[in-house]
Amino acid sequence: MSSIEIIALALGALTIASALMVVLSMHPVRSVLYLILTFFLISANYVLLNAQFLAIVNIVVYAGAIMVLFLFVLMLLNLSKDNEPRASNIMKLAASLAAGALVIVLVAALKDAIYLPVVENVQGNSQGLVENLGQLLFTKYVLPFETSSVLFIAAMVGAVLLSKKEKQIID
């Protein structure tokens, strides 16, 4: 086994382990912290896959913005281990069986998939750099890019409207 292979395998195993801890740890704040760790590990995978810009964006947007929002709401609602709602054991067993069956079916189906031949060095290994991505974003994908701003405005207005007091919405 070459060194890069060992690094890839170890990163994959760590990513899966911390993702599992998100689901299995009972304390909600611990789940959030494990999810932040998972996002950092996925960013490490991006670096390994030559997507350097996306690795940074993933840390800034997911670990920096979205997870802080989750942590904020969790602290605001004052949830602790004691009032954490728990599923019954039968539900847990059924859910584990369903998820296990899903992964078996997906892996079995993907085993027969025929992959296109790997293309090496089309753009000199620079497809993950900001120069190339910006070029694509503002030429080929400029319409979806502009449309996403409308989505953001809608989400912002929705969030502000929802978090106002109920009386003010009725008036």
Binding site: F53, V57, A65, K140, A155, M156
Partner: peptide
Amino acid sequence: HGTGDAQVFVFFIMVVAAAEATV
């Protein structure tokens, strides 16, 4: 596969995820 198109789609997924999380 040596193209950057899929990475642009990752951006759009992140945009939708951020909007979804806030709402």
